[in-house]
Design a protein around this nucleic acid. Structure first.
Length: 270
DNA sequence: CCGCAGGCCCCAC
DNA sequence: GTGGGGCCTGCG
C-alpha cells in the first residue's frame, strides 16, 4: 500500500473544514472526488498517509504540502485567540481544488447549509458527470464547464434559485479564463470573478483561496463575521466590507489560513 | 407550520 | 455606496 510521509498535516481537519464537499467516510477511509479523479486516503499515523487512486505528486499539490507551514503560522499567530485556534486545529491546510468545481460549489452555498450543498453537488455529478469506480465504490467525476448544459436537470438537482446562476456560469466560464486568474494580482482576479452572475464577494474569495492559491483572500461568511465581531470589535455589528478589510490588513499574506482557523474555532463553539 | 441556513441581486435611499 | 427584503429547498 502506497505511503506518503507528512509533517504538520491533519487529514480530518483539512477534509472537514468546509472547503471540500465531495468527501465520503467509509470504514476508516476517506473517499474524495476531486480534480477528475476519485481517490481514497487515511492518516495511519501523525506522519503517514496511506492512499489509493492518486500519487505523491498529486497529493502534495492538492493538499498544499509544499507550503511553508511554520512560516504561515508565524505570520497569522497575532494574538491569544489565534494562538488557541491554531493549536486546536494544527495541521489544517488550505487545499488546491479544481477552480470550476469550487466555483459551482460555492454558488450552491448561498443561503444553504453543508448537507444541502453536498446534495446539490452529488445530484449535479450524477446527472452530468462521468461514472467511475474505485475498488468497491462507484461515484462520479464532477462535470466540467460546458457540461452543465440542461437547465431542467440543474433545477432537478434541487439548486433552487441558484440554478440560473449555475447555468450562466456554465455558459460563460471556461478553463482558460480560470487558469489565467492565477497570474493576476488578487484584486484583479477577484474583480474578474465578480463579473460572473451568482458570484459575490464571499464566493469569489472562497474560489481564490480554496482553488487558486490566493492565501491572502479572506472570505466573510456568517460564522467568521460573528467571531470577528466578538473577538476584535467588542460584539459591535460591523459591515462585511469592513471585516474583510480588517482581516486582510491584520493577518497579511496568509489571512486565508487565519480565516480558516477562526472559522473552525467559531463552529466548534456551536 | 414556521423559521432559518456557511449569500446574491435588486432596488430604494 | 450602502442597507434591507426576497428567494428555492430541506430540515428541525
Amino acid at each position: 500500500m502506497p505511503k506518503l510521509p507528512v509533517k504538520d498535516f491533519h487529514l480530518c481537519h483539512t477534509l472537514l473544514c468546509g472547503q471540500l464537499f465531495r468527501v465520503k467516510k467509509i470504514d476508516d477511509w476517506f473517499y474524495v472526488a476531486a480534480k477528475n479523479r476519485i481517490f481514497k486516503i487515511r492518516q495511519s499515523s501523525l506522519e503517514t498517509l496511506e492512499y489509493h487512486g492518486a500519487d505523491k505528486k498529486f497529493l502534495t499539490e492538492f493538499f498544499a504540502l509544499d507550503e511553508p507551514y511554520d512560516d504561515i503560522i508565524a505570520h497569522i499567530n497575532k494574538d491569544s485567540h489565534m494562538n488557541s485556534a491554531i493549536k486546536k486545529f494544527h495541521g489544517l491546510r488550505i487545499v488546491r481544488q479544481d477552480p470550476w468545481e469550487c466555483l459551482i460549489s460555492f454558488i450552491c452555498s448561498a443561503a444553504a447549509n453543508i448537507p444541502k450543498i453536498q446534495l446539490n453537488l452529488e445530484k449535479l455529478s450524477e446527472y452530468f458527470g462521468e461514472k467511475v469506480k474505485l475498488h468497491d465504490l462507484e461515484w462520479y467525476i464532477f462535470p466540467g464547464p460546458g457540461q452543465l448544459n440542461n437547465y431542467k436537470q440543474i433545477v432537478m438537482a434541487k439548486t433552487g434559485f441558484r440554478a440560473k446562476h449555475i447555468k450562466a456560469a456554465n455558459d460563460t466560464v471556461d478553463r482558460v479564463f480560470l487558469t489565467a486568474l492565477n497570474k493576476l494580482p488578487y484584486a484583479e482576479a477577484k474583480k474578474a470573478l465578480l463579473q460572473i452572475p451568482g458570484i459575490g464577494s464571499k464566493v469569489a474569495d472562497c474560489v481564490l483561496l480554496f482553488s487558486l492559491g490566493f492565501s491572502e483572500a479572506f472570505p466573510i461568511d456568517t460564522w467568521i463575521k460573528k467571531i470577528l465581531q466578538e473577538i476584535y470589535f467588542k460584539n459591535k455589528i460591523v459591515s462585511n466590507k469592513e471585516l474583510h478589510t480588517f482581516g486582510m490588513n491584520y493577518f497579511g499574506k496568509y489571512a486565508g489560513y487565519a480565516q480558516q482557523f477562526l472559522y473552525m474555532h467559531a463552529r466548534g463553539k456551536k
